[in-house]
Write a protein that binds this DNA or RNA. Structure first.
Lengths: 215, 215
DNA sequence: TTAAAATTAGGGGAAAACCCCCAATAATAT
DNA sequence: ATATTATTGGGGGTTTTCCCCTAATTTTAA
């Protein structure tokens, strides 16, 4: 028996879901919540397999709920449900631990399919959502290549030093591990700062990660 | 007329593609390459709209070629082609600027569709590839939550300071912008170092980005 | 209501990073 | 061959970070 918790601030929607699900013999709606915090407390006190979670909950929103859930109750799976096929919602909640994402205009059959997929440990996304994610993946790339100033090519040594900086080594430690002088590493550091247009190591690391320079 | 460069180390495959494409009036194979470096030199010397790039090229592999291409010739679009539906290949080459990814068992019609989509600035992925990407997105999350040590909750102030550090502000500048003392910011810094288990700002930024702490 | 955590702030010091300056040698490209 | 870039290294100095200590006030949670 799959134990479900339905979380949405619209009572009618929650009841609708419940009536859809109650005809299924392997599914059971064990709880209904109308805001974020009550989801967390319900899950703490009752066994739940899957939370059908509205992304746009009032008060504590779905994202936060999902994040907290996946941290404190990693065994509980989250199927995100939303009215909107917004790429920001989709990617955000996936990064916060949701196992699936469907839209509210999803039909009965697809809802059941999604629930059972997730219960089996698989993930589920409706077709529209999948398309949205692909688009956002691409736009993400475009955005990062569009906004940023051209980055001059880094030399082999500079890349090495950069990686070690990101791994929290000090200049002296980098010098030791590369068998070169402290001054040489400082010299590479300063050309890195200038090439990446950064003010300090923090910026170096941020820019390096934004540009995938650490592979 | 869409100008295509076909890059693959298997001559038969290149010729096959060419013969498929030559019946199309809006497509023209203007070049054929059998290794990585020659792709780069061809593109430098000839106008090319789309490169049909085999991911598994000998010598300089497809990934490197794609990365260099998108840096030095961002106007040239890359349609990655591979024998394997390996998630590592797919995600890697997408992060290196490819606009689409199809498999070698793709049929004629889908190939044409992919080329024209990409020419119009859209992206294209075959169905199998899309599934693979979704899976890898999920696994990525699993991997990152599996390996990393639990991160204590950061307080509101700590998050603020962390974001400003990542934006390359110095402690003094952070103090000024938050209207608090230098010493207070130092105190937040040190609790950040301890909570995130970092040795310095570089680590702070790396860990913050690895855990999406900067949104 | 009491305990715990967060926010504030300071003194003082050591280590690291950052910023000028410069310059020789090695590798690479034209 | 020759010019450019990469790599190496140094002197000397300022700024910033990091670390140790303490501690009052405020906010939040049990």
């Amino acid at each position: 028996m799959i134990k479900l918790l339905v979380a949405d601030d619209h009572t009618m929607f929650v009841d609708g879901i419940e009536s859809i699900l109650k005809t299924e013999e392997d599914l059971e709606v064990t709880g209904k919540c109308y805001n974020g915090p009550s989801v967390l407390s319900f899950v703490t006190e009752n066994p739940v397999d899957i939370v059908l979670l509205d992304v746009n909950l009032p008060g504590m929103n779905g994202l936060e709920v999902c994040k907290t859930l996946s941290e404190e109750h990693p065994e509980v799976k989250v199927l995100a449900i939303s009215m909107f096929n917004e790429e920001s919602f989709v990617t955000e909640i996936l990064n916060h631990g949701a196992k699936g994402y469907i839209l509210k205009n999803t039909g009965r059959d697809e809802l059941l399919k999604a629930i059972r997929s997730i219960y089996e440990g698989k993930s589920y996304f409706s077709k529209e959502v999948t398309e949205t994610i692909m688009k956002s993946l691409m736009n993400q790339r475009k955005a990062s290549t569009r906004t940023d100033h051209f980055i001059p090519k880094l030399s082999r040594r500079e890349k090495e030093v950069l990686k070690l900086i990101a791994q929290e080594f000090t200049t002296q430690e980098i010098a030791d591990s590369l068998y070169i002088s402290l001054k040489t590493v400082e010299s590479h550091r300063s050309s890195l700062l200038s090439k990446l247009n950064a003010r300090n190591s923090a910026g170096l690391v941020r820019i390096a990660m934004e540009h995938n320079l650490l592979d």
